[in-house]
Each structure stands twice: as structure tokens, then as C-alpha cells.
Amino acid sequence: MANTSQAGAAIPRMRPSRFRLPPGEAWRENLYGYLFISPWILGFVMFLAGPLLVSLGLMFTEYAGFKKITYVGLANFEELIKFDIRFIGSLRVSAVFAFWTVSLAIIISLAMALLLNQRFKGHTFFRGLFYLPAAVSGVAMTFVWAAMFEKDYGMFNQILRIFDFDRVAWLTSIEWALPSYIIMRLYGVGHYMVIMLAGLQSIPDDLHEAAKVDGANALALFRHVTLPLLSPTIFFLMIVGMIGSLQVFTEGFMLTQGGPARSTLFYVLYLYIVAFTERRFGYASVLAWLLFLIIMGLTLLQFWLARRWVHYESEEA
């Protein structure tokens, strides 16, 4: 490869090359590079990294947001490990929720993607339609679901009544409240489906052809060709789905505030309650950092897996 400075001294040539520039030009690279990224760095340090570090310090304090701030050493950690039943409960609720939503979403989206991967008339229409709910998530959807789950007139109980089942206290009973949220979350399964479909379409056709020539039937084809080649996509969805469902807050805050009997006390909801209802900023920071570490761990795992599986086309690194 030609030396990057050959075009002339006045024209800074910036290639994603790994060659060092002559000393006379390196400063320009640095200057422009730093100028371009400076607004981002400033915002990042002030409103993301900064607060994260502040809460690192707050972990060792008792603080209600007013003047008085007391250093309490490791008392917050001790409370977390030894005494806090709500913490253990919320961790469990979030883990159960994440497990079921992610595994069901992957199974359903895989089935949907396999169907939509057939080249039939209108497959783009159906794909667009199945993704729609994922695009309209949020507060309005949450209340629509609350109406669906309503005990007397809600759609679900109306359907149950048609088939002569007893009606279910969806959001108001300990057994059914968390499953209700899982159903609600699965409504956004179109998000998984779109990515799953892209994964399916990236599998080269000739592999299927070759397997068929070798006499593989549809089931063997799926099990030995499609599924292994799809595994990076499935792992990606698993991790991203886990990260997403650990961060659930809005639905729980709106509809049940953690009840009944803390059966829907999601982790982030508990964090919010400790911080802004009970105003225990120090203890909330411990909870926040734990959340950060869990999600960071999952993300690093994802990057690591992506490095092993995904081939970058524009970048050699």
C-alpha cells in the first residue's frame, strides 16, 4: 500500500490505514479527530460517565437528596446481602420474567420467521404487520393491555368465558400477575422476528441444496443446517432480550407498582422506589451499580460472541 502522505503536504489524507503519518501531518490528524469527537466526549463524560462515577461514591453514603450526606462505609452492601428481602425478590422476579419472555420470544419468533421465509405472495406485508406492535410500545400500549386483562369485561376473560373456563384475575392475583406481563411483553415479538428472519436469509441457499442432494429431509435440514447456522442470531437475541427484559420499568410502574405481594416488583421498579419514594440515594446507588455490572457482563459476552461469529466486511480488526 502506498504511503498515505504522498498526495501532498497540504492535504491531510485520512485512511483507516495503520501506517504512521510523517510528524508534520500527525498533528492535523489529531486536531481534526479530536475536534470532531469533542462534543460527543463532552456529553458522554458529563451526563453518562460522570453520573456513573458519582453513584460509585454514593454507594458508601446515606443520602436523601438534601444537604446532609453521611458516610456509612459498607453498611449499604451489608444490608443488600444480609437483610433485604425485597432485593432478593426483585432479582427473582426479573430473572423469571427475563427467562420466560426471552425463551418464549425466541421460539415464537423462530417459528414465525420460518413461515415468513417462504416465498409466498404478501410475505413483506405480513412481516411489516407482525413488527407493528414492537414499534408502538410504551405507555399507551400498556393501558390497552390493562383493558384486555380487565377482570370482568377484558378480552381475555371474555374468550375464557366462551370456552367455559373460570375467569382469571390477570393482573391482580399473585399467580397470574407476572405471567400477564410476560404475555404483554411477547406482544413485541415482531422485533425478534425481524432479526431472526434476517439471520435466516443470510444462510446461503446452496447449503440447503447440497443437503437435499445428500438426501436430508426437512427436519434433518432444519436441525443440522439451519439451526447451527442460525445460532449466532439466536445468541444475539438471547442476550439483547435479556438486557431488555432486565430493564423493564414502565409497565410495572403503571399497572401494579410491584404488587400483589411484590410478585411483580421488577428490579428497576424496586430501584426507582428505593430512590424516589423512599429517597435512599445511597442504597439505590448500590442497586444501580449491580444492575450496571450485570448488564455490562451480558454486553461484553455479546461482543465476545460477535467477534467469534460475525464477519466484518468493512473492517479487518
Binding site: 469527537i37 458522554f44 453518562l48 437528596g65 440515594f281 444492575l291 450496571f292
Partner: peptide
């Protein structure tokens, strides 16, 4: 290094920042 370092920004669950951001 900067790019990788700030990729970490993606991994920060923004909810973990509610207390210090509010204070900030």
C-alpha cells in the same frame, strides 16, 4: 481505544443513572 471505551456507553443501563443524573 476511545471507540472501544465509549462502546461501553452502550452497555450502561440508563436506569442505573437516575439518582446521580437527577442530582447532577
Amino acid at each position: 481505544a476511545l471507540f472501544l471505551y465509549f462502546l461501553v456507553g452502550m452497555a450502561v443501563p440508563t436506569q442505573a443513572l437516575m439518582v446521580p443524573s437527577f442530582k447532577l
